[in-house]
Structure formats: structure tokens, C-alpha cells
Design a protein around this nucleic acid. Structure first.
Length: 419
RNA sequence: GGCCCCAUCGUCUAAUGGUUAGGACAGCGCUCUUUCAAGGCGUAAAUCCGGGUUCGAUUCCCGGUGGGGCCGCCA
């Protein structure tokens, strides 16, 4: 039995797309489930458009996601190999130098296409049959030293003994061409699995105009990588039961092509946020502090950070949210004095309650007992506003816990002075 | 336009000939509650259309419609 070997083959011409990331996940899950290998191959045959920084982005983002590869290749390092095969194809007549000029330039190398039907079994879609007649003699290399995508990909898949090519649906129409090349070269045809596309709100292929399309952007926004992995795995796939929160290990053991969807799936940020909140909620105190700290101004570090991070752990969808949510903790917010008044309460009573709370804080008394007696809204609302300056915020006692008595007292006294 | 792929609530999906068509996100309502969020409970919401096949179609077949992808000396 052939060893399972899958690959993710991005081209470094832009930031790694989430669609690539999802394809990477499926390649990874299938390989790991089968005890096989997952390969990362950078397809940079187009030197004009390829950039090292994009290769770095892809690697960094993939590692962040939790997709580590067993082997790494870069097509620009393999030029001699391709040249050798181009020569071979020229010799055996499966390719030829085309001199006719279409529009711009000079000689190129074309594949000698005999036409005829090509069939392949797609694991997800079943049999696909295409008449290759109208493909014509397509170009497979710019010159004897410069292969183009189809040739390089076919050669590499064969040489690296890729058993399963798992990629986006947008490659279905490339497959017959690649099979033709395999046949001319005497290479085996791998198994194919074409994944449904990830779509934007308008159901077209997810792209920049839909907003964040790069995996690294989600890293920058502070989504936990486990949440992103989980979310992406659920786009076009579903386990046998109703679980939606699954660890990487669970995904590996549950994965099956039989449960991969055929239709495209819209990238729903709200569902991502929901999954993300679930992961963040389960973080330990140390973890939440560490993660949130990366999205915060230097001045906030230390001091109240720990308690604040803990307080907002259940209230953020991504780590970067903390900066806005917890801002009032670190930078007291100005507010209208009127905001301090609860419903129909009087200014005098409000002031009285705040003064009493100050006493209680100083003496270590129980604020809740007092609030219970005087009316929770009448006491708690102005207290909370004086501490946060906000219409909406966490509860006052929680804020005091984060702020400490001294600063809490200062803020309440400031509120009293405003009244 | 040509070729190819696809089609269950708004969204992600379950149900591979027999279910009151299930779950989740989002929405809405109630509850909790000083506010917001979270939580708990509840509610509304779908088989694209037309033909077959069958005792019976979400499920199988055909046709339509709709959506998408690909049509580079990019990948």
C-alpha cells in the first residue's frame, strides 16, 4: 500500500489566503489520520511575482495555525530537475518549441495535445469527464529552463510521491491538463479531492473586497489559532455527531472525505467569533494575560493588567478586543454628570449613596448589603458609572476589584464632585 | 460565450428511500440582572422548480432555473 502523502502548494504572490489555510488543514488532517506526511511546497516558478516576504508570511501563519509540515520544498530550488524533464519531453515529442507569435513574444514550449476524453475520480465529487480537445497545445514552459505551473506541479507531485492532491475546486478545470502531462511523462495519477470554495457574503470566491482574506490578518486580530483551526475545519466539513468545538487531535481522528461538503461555504465571521469566545473563555489566567498583553500599549503592562485581563476574559471575541473594552480601566473616561443618575433618582440621594460607598470601601464594609437596603439601581448604577464612565460595563464590584480601593475611591470622589 | 462544479432555515450543516426535516451561529422573546456582555429557557426560519422511478422521495434519474469556478508566456 502506498504511503499517504499530501501537500499544500501556495504561490508566494500575496499573503496566504484563508482558502489555502483551509486546504492546508484538510491535507494535514487526512495525512495525520492516515499516518502519512504533510508537505509544504512553495510554488514560485513565476519569479516576477513571487516574493520572499510572502513565503515567510505563509510559513509563519501556517505554524501559528498549528500546521507543521514534514518536508519543505521550494520550486525555484529545483530548476535543474524541471529542465531535465523539459528536455526529455522535447526529445520524445510530447512537447515542442512553438515559434508562432500570439500577440507579444517569442518562443515557448507547448504540450503536444492529442485531444480525447480524460476521466478522473474525484474523492469528493465522483467521476469527472472532460474532452481535452479544446485545451489545445497549451504552454508548459517559457523556455527549456523555465517551467510553468502545470508542468512543475505535476513533476513535483510525482517526484515527491504525493498520493492525494487535495486542493480547491478552482483547480478542477486544471486537472485534465495535468493528467495529460502525467500520461506523457509516464507519471502515476494521484487521487484527487477538490474542496468546495470559501465564499464571501455575496457567494463569490472570498477575496480582498470581502474584507480580511489573509490568514495572517486573523493572527493580527488576535484570534486564538485553535479557534481559527476549528472554525476553518468546519467550513465544508462536519463530524458525525453535533459537536462543533473540536481540538486538533479530535479533528484528526474524526476527519473523513465522506463528510466533506460539495457546495461552497460562506465565511461567517460571527460564527468564528462565537467559536473564538469559547476558546478564550477556557484560557487560564496566565494564558489570557499573556495573549491580551500583545495588543495593549506599553503603559498598561503590569499593575492592573492581570486582573483586568481576567475580568474581560468572558467578554471578548478576540484578544485585540481587550484594548477597547478595558480602556476605561487604564485611562479614566470623562462622562456627563447626568449619566450618574439612575432613572428617577435625585442628585442628592445619588451623592449620598456614593459617599456612603466610599465609607464602606474604606472600612471594608459590604456594599451589596447597603445596595440591597437602599435599592440596587440607586446605588449600583451611579457607582458603576463613576468607576467606568460608561453606559455599559462590567459590574461595579468587579471593577473595584481590578482598580483597587485607592483608585476606586478617587474615581468615586471625582463623581461626587461632579454632582 | 465555451467547458466544468454545485443546490436543505439568513449562515454553517444533519438526515445516504419511511424523521413532527435535527443541531449550531445569527435573529427574536423571556429569564437572570444596576447597565452591557455571558448564562439558562423558549421561538421563528429550509428541502430551487418541473417531470419521472417507487407503496413512499431531501435522498435515485432526466430537464429547467439559479449560483459558482476555470478559460494567461499567473498559480
Amino acid at each position: 500500500m502506498q504511503k499517504i502523502r499530501t501537500r499544500l502548494a501556495p504561490s508566494p504572490t500575496g499573503l496566504l489566503h484563508v482558502g489555502n489555510a483551509r486546504a492546508g488543514i484538510f491535507n494535514y488532517l487526512f495525512a495525520k489520520k492516515s499516518g502519512g506526511e504533510f508537505i509544504l511546497r512553495i510554488e514560485d516558478t513565476d519569479l516576477e511575482r513571487s516574493r520572499k516576504e510572502y513565503e515567510d508570511d505563509a510559513k509563519e501563519a501556517l505554524l501559528w495555525l498549528g500546521l507543521s509540515w514534514d518536508s519543505f520544498y521550494r520550486q525555484s530550488d529545483r530548476k535543474e530537475i524541471y529542465a531535465e524533464y523539459i528536455e526529455k519531453m522535447l526529445e520524445n515529442g510530447s512537447a515542442y518549441v512553438s515559434k508562432e507569435v500570439e500577440g507579444n513574444s517569442k518562443e515557448v514550449i507547448r504540450f503536444k495535445n492529442k485531444g480525447g476524453p480524460v476521466k478522473f475520480d474525484d474523492i469528493i465529487r465522483g467521476q469527472v469527464e472532460v474532452d481535452t480537445e479544446d485545451l489545445g497545445d497549451f504552454v508548459i514552459a517559457k523556455d527549456t529552463q523555465t517551467p510553468l505551473y502545470h508542468l512543475a506541479a505535476v513533476l513535483d507531485d510525482a517526484l515527491m510521491e504525493i498520493s492525494h492532491v487535495i486542493r480547491g475546486e478552482d483547480h478542477i478545470s486544471n486537472t485534465p491538463r495535468q493528467i495529460l502531462i502525467q500520461q506523457a511523462l509516464g507519471c502515476p495519477t494521484p487521487k484527487y479531492a477538490h474542496l468546495p470554495l470559501i465564499l464571501g457574503e455575496d457567494r463569490s470566491k472570498l477575496s480582498k473586497r470581502h474584507g480580511a482574506e489573509a490568514l495572517s490578518e486573523y493572527k493580527k486580530l488576535g484570534y486564538p489559532p485553535e479557534a481559527m483551526f476549528n472554525f476553518l475545519a468546519l467550513l465544508g466539513w462536519h463530524p458525525e455527531d453535533d459537536r462543533e468545538i473540536l481540538s486538533k487531535e479530535e479533528l484528526v481522528s474524526e476527519f473523513s472525505f465522506a463528510r466533506v461538503q460539495k457546495g461552497g461555504a460562506i465565511f461567517d465571521k460571527r460564527k468564528l467569533d462565537w467559536i473564538s469566545r469559547g476558546y478564550i473563555k477556557k484560557l487560564s489566567e496566565g494564558e489570557i494575560i499573556e495573549n491580551v498583553a500583545q495588543f495593549v500599549p506599553k503603559e498598561w503592562e503590569g499593575g492592573k493588567m492581570g486582573k483586568a485581563a481576567k475580568l474581560f476574559r468572558d467578554r471578548i471575541s478576540k484578544f485585540s478586543d481587550f484594548k477597547e473594552e478595558a480602556k476605561f480601566i487604564f485611562e479614566p473616561k470623562d462622562y456627563e454628570a447626568g449619566l450618574l443618575i439612575w432613572k428617577n433618582a435625585s442628585k442628592e440621594d445619588t451623592k449620598k449613596h456614593l459617599e456612603k460607598v466610599c465609607e464602606l470601601i474604606s472600612s471594608g464594609g459590604d456594599i451589596m448589603v447597603y445596595a440591597q437596603k437602599e435599592g440596587r439601581g440607586e446605588v449600583l448604577w451611579p457607582l458603576r458609572v463613576s468607576l467606568s464612565g460608561l453606559k455599559n460595563s462590567p459590574g461595579p464590584l468587579e471593577i473595584i476589584e481590578v482598580l483597587g480601593s485607592e483608585e476606586s475611591l478617587n474615581r468615586i470622589r471625582h463623581a461626587i464632585s461632579k454632582l
